[in-house]
Design a binder for these strands. Structure first.
Lengths: 294, 294
DNA sequence: CCAGTCCTATAGCGTCTTGCTATGGAACGT
DNA sequence: ACGTTCCATAGCAAGACGCTATAGGACTGG
């Protein structure tokens, strides 16, 4: 039972005869004869009554015609969906991102992408580390990834575009004034307690590096979910290190936010595998690069 | 986009790879490669990401896989429906019948048929005359027909089975005693007024024959719908001629019912075209002949 | 780091299906 | 009785799909 057979079947039903249907389908009439004969044999049911030189839909055929139409409608819907996806009109982009990257720049990219491609849905898969993002892209679990990494990510068939640099900020509980200016030097961190994320994340790497240099920096809490760092800081449990995407939110919440002097920056990268991308994904990449170009 | 391609597509999705799917489908792996490549080209969408020596479903593929499964489910449902119809488990029998035949014996046949084939639906198309019933069968608009006719119906490729004889009865308004016994002779009809159906029906043929023999039989009303004859008789408009199937109902309604002496009988026939019948229709014919055999 | 293994893609070839044209046969209209 | 109008069948060319063999890329174990 192939699609063509059903197509012929409903055409004959609608045209009321083999000959008319053949003309409408632009095939020879014997092709219909054979296709229907085969279908009838396959289904074990007589679809048409051959009466005189005409055919009449049998009761079985009548019952099956509706189902056949349903199948063809679904098939058409699927083809239409595929076309939309192929043209990038609709589709889904799976983006692997670390949670800091997921906030910024991905949120901005999504906002811009939706202006030109309203049908495209962006789904972000959170990864814990840049390495994990890259792994997801390389393994094909996502088509693109966004992550911060000191070096340009490399890998078999991997393409990396440099986005803006992310800046890490110091966030301390409300009222805990650390410096009179807008920036702090690493030395001023001495003796402070921190809420940190688990190892293998960019912020944790920064913390470890600072701790190794400064010494005397204590861990107040280590959390698996980075989104709870700010709430813990706000409760006074300790200070936190956060990407600049969080700064606005932290300030609104009452926390004190300081830049580092010198600034702690981390390049952010857009990565995808070499080769043809899905139309929706290509749109995502194009949008990202167009807006990220400074 | 043929059924086989979709079948392969979902198999690969479910098995997680071409090779496993090929084993499950019992085809060679290259067949899958080519089928999917063709499908992707046809849809203009990459269904799988080829990553390393494996494949991963793309987001487009993910969106289309559900639709493909839907199509295949519908296709299976259709196949199952066809099988049921083919086996006669379910199905519909279109029976052409005159309205008198539709009452009896068709009603009894339906009752018996439903015992052995509960899934079979009988649809009766009412015809005005035996000639019309035969025409509908010959033209294939119905597979079988039931009608009363003095002679065995003949026609190109027509098969006719004799059923029981239908007996016509005289029905008169309540209280209008015609005879002391259960039967009347034609002479007793003299001077009576009748409610009759339109020409070309079996009862009208009987009336016309009697009227020609007896003379002095008046038409009180001629109705197009035979079902209104009994109500009109009950209101005293005139007497009526009815097949025996109506007798019980007429008596319950208070009318007086008499047989004719000699009895007025009309053979009833089951007709269908020569050749293979739909399973459900064959069941209908078998049931009819089995119960009608006296 | 190299060989072995695993998986998909391609090539080459045989068979089955589908397309076509030509023709038969039955049924209808004139 | 004839021609017309259908569907069915026959015969043949082109395409689709089956298979095996093999290439190529990527992981694994020594």
């Amino acid at each position: 039972m192939e699609r063509r057979q059903l197509e012929y079947f409903v055409a004959i039903v609608e045209q009321g005869g083999f000959t008319h249907a053949a003309r409408a389908l632009r095939v020879a009439q014997p092709s219909l004869s054979r296709a229907i004969t085969k279908l009838e044999h396959e289904l074990g049911v007589e679809l048409f009554h051959r009466v005189g030189r005409n055919v009449v839909l049998s009761s079985a055929g009548e019952m099956l015609a509706d189902r056949a139409r349903l199948v063809l409608r679904d098939l058409d819907a699927m083809r239409a969906a595929a076309r939309s996806i192929g043209e990038g009109a609709v589709g889904r982009v799976d983006v692997a991102a670390t949670s800091s990257s997921a906030l910024e720049p991905v949120t901005s990219i999504i906002a811009e992408l939706r202006e030109h491609h309203p049908g495209v849905v962006v789904s972000t898969s959170s990864a814990l580390s840049a390495a994990e993002v890259i792994a997801m892209v390389v393994q094909g679990r996502c088509e693109v990834g966004v992550c911060g990494n000191a070096e340009r990510p490399t890998g078999r068939g991997l393409v990396a575009h440099h986005l803006r640099d992310e800046e890490f900020l110091l966030v301390v509980p409300p009222g805990a004034i650390v410096s009179s200016g807008p920036a702090v030097s690493p030395d001023q961190l001495r003796g402070m307690r921190f809420v940190v994320t688990k190892p293998a994340t960019a912020v944790r790497a920064l913390f470890d590096r600072l701790a190794a240099t400064i010494g005397d920096m204590a861990i107040a809490a280590e959390v698996g979910d980075r989104s709870v760092v700010l709430p813990m800081v706000l409760k006074g449990i300790g200070a936190g290190l956060m990407p600049d995407g969080w700064a606005d939110l932290a300030r609104r919440a009452g926390a004190e936010v300081y830049r580092f002097d010198p600034a702690e920056r981390l390049p952010q990268w857009l990565v995808h595998r070499r080769g043809q991308l899905t139309a929706a994904t290509q749109a995502f990449v194009d949008t990202t690069l167009a807006s990220g170009r400074d």
